[in-house]
Write a protein that binds this DNA or RNA. Structure first.
Length: 488
RNA sequence: GGCCCCAUGGUCUAGCGGUUAGGACGUUGGCCUCUCACGCCGAAAUCCCGGGUUCAAUUCCCGGUGGGGUCACCA
């Protein structure tokens, strides 16, 4: 039976390189054995999921060259492929679980849960988790309360808590992973907002979509027993499980936005070649078995085997990616390079967007290039303008703090996230006000940080022109430069 | 902290009982050269520790240590 695998990203932000990494191994595995590669959008978090993020994921994955046989955009026989459109399915399944006694309603309030957690923390409890308060509720009575409109969630009833143990086989590690049932929480399967949690939706969908191999990040390994128990409760055969090592920061923690550019768009917009990025990702954890490390996806497919994949989490070494990319650019003919540059860097849309601002400020046509140059390239040189960030009434520490604060907040504000000039301005003015800084002060810092210049088009046009990822990169660079400076 | 996973130079990896432990990035010395880059030649740097098993362990087993993940009405 040919495998069916899926990549199931959550549309809650910029498309992540970790998603690309997991997608790559799923994709290669599917192709190797003539299987199907499926895209499923896991948008059960109503708070954070956005359709723009879903669009971005699809755009990013396509840019990298992935093609899926089934997905929200291409359809397929097991749709819908967007979990928010499968609510009825989950409702039916949760009812089935409750009927079988495998799940129960829980009416505990947030307050009680918070208090419980605090208590467990204070008592230095070995295992934090739900205490089973509602476990013994009479099903009929609980149904009544639910009917009366009382807020509740539905939890999985982990069987045999005292003695039981749940085991699954991990194909990458080539061994069984065993976890005591007492370590497993009575997970919430259905939230009080009427949406399923990951655990329920994921298991139900994987089964209904005929997924044969679940290839995902290692962060899921400890919750796999929950999933196994769910399959069992439904009377289903679980798929095979493969947990890939997590991509790491240089300090070996899980790859994070704070410490690394993680958006796929960052790599696209700064001009990494998609096949190069893929090749680089492929070398993290996989090898052809010889000295070659420059290979295509097709070569990866022909040599692929789980025994060729390592289970440790690799550090994402941007310097090595750079060397790969530089070598691949060198290998291009001038004509090929020209086409890529015109397509990506100097596309008519992008160029015109810049010319709108340049035309008011240049004396000669030839000046256009130096004028718009702020919108290109990675980091900028702050040498000539560094003195300008020495704000009269602020210490260096304050300047660093406000820049970090801004860089962080821009990720959270729904308006700012879009990186549209108007939304950015609204956000930025609000930011200044709430922090008690003059807009003038902050805007100066941002202008310098983003462009290395003191004179640019309107700050928010400038930022939009540079793009979110470039702004983020340069702001972070400025911060690190300042951190290395003496105080003023 | 409990549980789980992982462990070859700084980083990514090859190795699958006997090798001068191979390659790549990075670092570094030199050559090439008007500069830089490329290219070429060279160097430093690794089997986490301790027990076993074995004639022989980087390799197999156990323990320790270290790193990571996870303990949400987020995925």
């Amino acid at each position: 039976m040919p495998p069916r695998v899926r990549i199931a990203p959550s549309p809650t932000g910029d498309p992540h390189v970790g998603t690309a990494y997991i997608a790559l191994f799923n994709y290669v595995f599917a192709r190797k054995y003539g299987g199907r590669f499926i895209l499923r959008i896991e948008d059960t978090d109503r708070e954070r999921s956005t359709s723009s993020s879903e669009d971005a994921i699809i755009e990013a994955l396509r840019w990298l060259g992935f093609e899926w046989e089934e997905g929200p955009d291409v359809g397929g026989p097991h749709g819908p492929y967007r979990q928010s459109e499968r609510l009825d399915i989950y409702r039916g399944h949760i009812a089935r679980l409750m009927e079988g006694g495998h799940a129960y309603r829980c009416f505990c309030t947030r307050e009680r849960l918070d208090a419980l957690r605090k208590e467990q923390l204070a008592a230095k409890a070995d295992h934090l988790g739900y205490d089973g308060h509602c476990r013994g509720l009479d099903p009929a009575a609980s149904a009544e309360r639910a009917k009366a409109g009382e807020a509740h969630v539905v939890r999985l009833r982990i069987p045999d808590k005292e003695e039981g143990t749940t085991v699954f086989f991990d194909d990458l590690r080539g061994k069984e992973v065993e976890i005591a049932n007492r370590q497993i929480d009575d997970q919430v399967l259905f939230k009080s907002d009427g949406f399923p949690t990951y655990h329920l939706a994921n298991v139900v969908d994987d089964h209904l979509m005929g997924i044969t191999h679940v290839i995902r990040g290692e962060e899921w390994i400890t919750s796999t027993p929950k999933h196994v128990l769910l399959y069992r409760a439904f009377g289903w055969e679980p798929p095979r499980f493969i947990h890939l090592g997590l991509l790491r920061n240089a300090d070996r923690s899980k790859l994070s936005k704070r410490k690394n550019p993680v958006s796929i768009f960052h790599y696209r917009d700064l001009g990494y070649l998609p096949e190069t990025l893929i090749n680089f990702l492929g070398t993290l954890g996989f090898s052809l078995g010889d000295d070659r490390e420059r290979f295509t996806v097709d070569e990866m497919i022909t040599h692929f085997d789980w025994s060729r994949v390592s289970a440790g989490g690799p550090v994402f070494d941007a310097a090595k990616l750079d060397s790969f990319n530089a070598a691949d650019i060198r290998a291009l003919t001038v004509d090929e390079l020209y086409l890529k540059v015109m397509d990506r860097v100097l596309s008519p849309e992008r160029l015109k967007g810049l010319l709108v601002h340049a035309k008011e400020r240049i004396d000669r046509l030839d000046d256009v290039i130096p004028y718009i140059s702020f919108a290109f390239g990675a980091e900028v040189d702050y040498g000539p303008v560094l003195a300008k960030v020495r704000l009269k009434k602020r210490t260096r520490a304050e300047v660093i703090a406000i820049l970090k604060d801004y860089a962080q907040e821009i990720e959270k504000d729904p308006g700012a996230r879009t990186f549209e000039p108007d939304a950015l301005e609204a956000f930025s003015r609000g930011f200044c006000e709430s922090r008690g800084w003059k807009a003038r002060e902050v805007f100066t810092l941002l202008r310098i940080g983003v462009t290395g210049r003191t004179a640019t088009p309107s700050l928010f046009d400038t930022m939009a022109l540079c793009g979110k990822d470039r702004c983020r990169l340069r702001l972070r660079h400025l911060i690190s430069v300042l951190e290395g400076e003496a105080d003023w």
